[in-house]
Design a protein around this nucleic acid. Structure first.
Lengths: 230, 230
DNA sequence: CATAAAAGTGAGTATTCACTCATGATTAAT
DNA sequence: ATTAATCATGAGTGAATACTCACTTTTATG
């Protein structure tokens, strides 16, 4: 897929998503995509062989090239729907809800909700997100997609939430960027540590988040007020 | 390199390190290694070509195979010294210092020092660390090296520091693991966000760390009561 | 300087792998 | 049922690439 086609593909994909994927929804098309997610995630894009994908999907190797003229097209066609899956719910549906919530709920409840939701969304899509993040490091088109379609908007949404909380006097008067960064860092760091050093994580994420949010809000420093937790 | 050779290579490398790299220190050996770091970091291990490495290092392709019989050996021989470079200073030299400091300095100073040191160590070795982290996902030997030789010990060191602080009443009585996790998450998350979304980071890391540490210690929540610094 | 050993080279090779295509199978249309 | 159109196949192909090796150049030794 050429770089200049991405914008077009993006538009098509968005409307396709809305129309419940009429096209390209042959059974084998999906089998190939799912097999590719599994293989790419295990070996990386460049380290994966189309022959192995075919075997995993239980189709002939030629069938792959019926749907995806180039190997790279498999990558792009799995990543673009992913971007939509993350992008749309985050920006279109949840956006309002979160901002609404952020005016009603306490900051603790709000953060726990956000952490839990994001964590599960990320955890359920871990294989393909792994592919997205890693290949974004090597492939300019993917990187562009990532930064232009996702990061900018997510950051702005996050800043909105932080500022709403600030207005209610729930958070300290630190630059919003810094606050958002601390929160996002914690979530990202938690997920990565969880994956890389699972031995370090024996408790349930749900429980961990309560502590994590507590630390984010109240810090790790000892205060005079006795907040006894174990 | 076969899996069972790694332990041997590890031992050899440790003594080599101590003896100031007597062997294998031909000029071209190093040129190839440095070129490989650059190329692997840009394209990933599987996506890199030995021809490109040769070009980058300005040696003949055959020369590479004089020093590294298999392409994979380049990867292993860059990663093992890296593990030593990170592992030894962290565990042997700094270990005592940090634990000493953790008994003298305030938690704020301590954390700022640790964050700064770790950040610079990581930042200066970003290319090769990127290779280590990514290839650990695909290569069992590297993954083993990573978890067995690094993570366990770093975590234990971290826990030691946290507990020393606890004894001095500098941190709240939360499970040490959780506290360490929060701190590590913040640092890792910061570094990654910094790399992935540089547009989000206009300030200097040194300045950011002060805020980051402040947030880690005091939290983002607004407090009515005055904070107690010790 | 003579000789041997070590380091370095790059054209050549064997293999791997993304992709093609001629043919067969399946479905849809008339 | 006949025809047309689409879907599916896997042996085959050409290009790419990790690795080899016969040879050249450099360095070390007496």
């Amino acid at each position: 897929m050429r770089s200049e086609d991405i914008e077009k593909f993006w538009e098509e994909s968005v409307s396709k998503e809305l129309n419940e994927n009429k096209k390209e929804s042959g059974e084998k098309y999906k089998r190939v995509l799912n097999a590719a997610i599994k293989i790419f995630s295990k070996r990386g894009f460049a380290g994966s062989r189309t022959s192995e994908i075919a075997k995993e999907a239980d189709v002939a190797e030629g069938t792959i090239f019926r749907y995806f003229p180039k190997k790279e097209d498999i990558l792009m066609e799995m990543i673009i729907p992913l971007v939509i899956k993350f992008y749309r719910p985050i920006l279109l549906e949840k956006n309002r809800k979160i901002l609404e919530k952020s005016k009603k709920e306490s900051i603790t409840e709000l953060l726990e909700t956000i952490f839990k939701e994001r964590y599960h969304l990320i955890d359920e899509n871990m294989d393909i997100l792994k592919i997205l993040c890693i290949e974004a490091l090597y492939n300019k088109d993917i990187r562009t997609l990532f930064t232009e379609k996702i990061s900018e908007d997510i950051l702005n949404l996050g800043l909105g939430v932080v500022e709403a909380q600030k207005e209610q006097g729930e958070v300290r008067d630190i630059e919003s960027k810094q606050i958002l960064r601390a929160g996002m860092s914690m979530l990202i760091g938690y997920i990565l540590l969880n994956r890389f050093v699972p031995s370090f994580f024996k408790s349930e994420p749900e429980e961990d988040f309560k502590v994590l949010v507590d630390i984010l809000i109240n810090g790790i420093g000892s205060k005079k007020e006795t907040k006894s937790e174990k």
